Simulated assay, not measured.
Amino acid sequence: MNFSLLSTMLLALVLFSVGYAQELSGNAKVSALFAFGDSILDTGNNNNLMTLSKCNFPPYGRDFAGGKATGRFGNGRVFSDLIAEGLSLKPLLPAYRDPNLSNNDLLTGVCFASGGSGLDERTSSSQGVIWVTDQVKDFKEYVTKLNGVVGGNQEQTNAIISNAVYLISAGNNDLAITFATGRAQSTVSDYTDLMVTWTDNLLKSLYDTGARKFAVLGTLPLGCLPGARDAAGNFMKVCAGPANQWADTFNKKLATKLNNLGTTLPGAKFVYVDMYNSLLGLINNPQAPGFTDEADGCYMPSMSPVPCPDASRYVFWDIGHPSEKSYQRIAPKIIEQLKAKLA
């Protein structure tokens, strides 16, 4: 097959993929999904890193198709997968650093997120994972690869990049790890101000690369994670108030920043995704969606190496990550929000 014919076929495939995604997603014209940040979105980028922050081993992935541990921090699919499916792109969002990533995967989006990462460079370096700034470097590399896949058609590359949704989850580890272990060095007010500044820098760097549609996740209710409940012998398993207060402080500042960014970055749209209250709704009323345990993780290796029989009965999979069912419960409303506001 000659190169000219191959380029024509690839371009036709891109046009079909973009058109298909736009048709199925109603008014939201979404060409692709790109995920950045931490383990809430990571689909396997840490697998080949020299880090302990990885989960490409059982029982992770127990409820994933084929029972395979893919490097996702959960029992099945993670939040980025569900958003990709909800936007009618694909049921799984592949990891950019997956050595088996295909050219076809590039057309409708990939994941750059890295479990354990954060906005603060210290958060990532302490664990040997991919800092969000370096994830943007991976994205720029991706853009070059994408341009090659579409036969050097820069206009088509730009169309995919500008019509994609950029899903970002960063801040959980900065508060739960870096700030929590070094509180004497900074106040929560000062540190969350820094976190908002770092988020602003991240969004602007993506904007300068062509991104225009942003969905930015607030942090989880960190004090209600099983690991936080169990800290310091918390036998009553109540949520840790200070950690929730840190998260709430950052989330409010982040939401305000996103509301104002649209006026300073022409053509860009921003959605604040309230993960805090979405998950807290399950925690405070677990019986409504069919959960029986909102405080423990199904898999708590520090207490027992054997996971629970049915993860769908648990709000959390492990000490710090929601179960697939929790993501499934909170995703539909968020997906509708993205479709409505990022059209």
Rank of each mutant, 00 (worst) to 15 (best):
Asn2Gln: 00
Phe3Ala: 14
Thr8Cys: 12
Leu13His: 15
Gly19Arg: 01
Tyr20His: 12
Ala28Met: 09
Ala28His: 03
Lys29Thr: 07
Val30Gly: 03
Val30Thr: 11
Leu33Ile: 13
Ile40Ala: 14
Asn46Ser: 06
Arg62Cys: 12
Gly71Asn: 06
Phe73Met: 10
Phe73Ser: 02
Asn75Thr: 06
Val78Asn: 05
Leu82Ala: 03
Ile83Pro: 00
Ser88Pro: 02
Ser88His: 10
Leu93Glu: 08
Leu93Asp: 08
Ser102Asp: 13
Val110Thr: 02
Ala113Pro: 10
Ala113Leu: 08
Ser114Asn: 03
Glu121Asp: 14
Glu121Arg: 14
Ser126Ala: 15
Lys137Tyr: 08
Glu141Thr: 15
Tyr142Lys: 06
Asn147Met: 12
Asn147Pro: 08
Asn153Ala: 15
Glu155Thr: 12
Ala164Glu: 01
Leu167Asn: 04
Ile168Gln: 01
Ala176Arg: 02
Thr181Arg: 14
Val188Asn: 04
Asp190Thr: 13
Thr192Ser: 03
Val196Cys: 09
Asp200Lys: 14
Asn201Ile: 05
Leu202Lys: 03
Ser205His: 09
Arg212Met: 04
Gly227Phe: 01
Ala232Ile: 07
Met236Thr: 12
Lys237Gly: 04
Cys239Lys: 01
Trp246Tyr: 08
Ala255His: 12
Asn259Thr: 09
Tyr276Asp: 12
Asn277Pro: 00
Asn285Glu: 06
Gln287Asn: 14
Asp293Glu: 10
Gly297Thr: 01
Tyr299Asn: 02
Ser302Leu: 15
Ser304Cys: 03
Val306Phe: 11
Phe316Met: 05
Ser323Arg: 08
Ser326Ala: 13
Arg329Val: 14
Ala331Arg: 04
Ala331His: 11
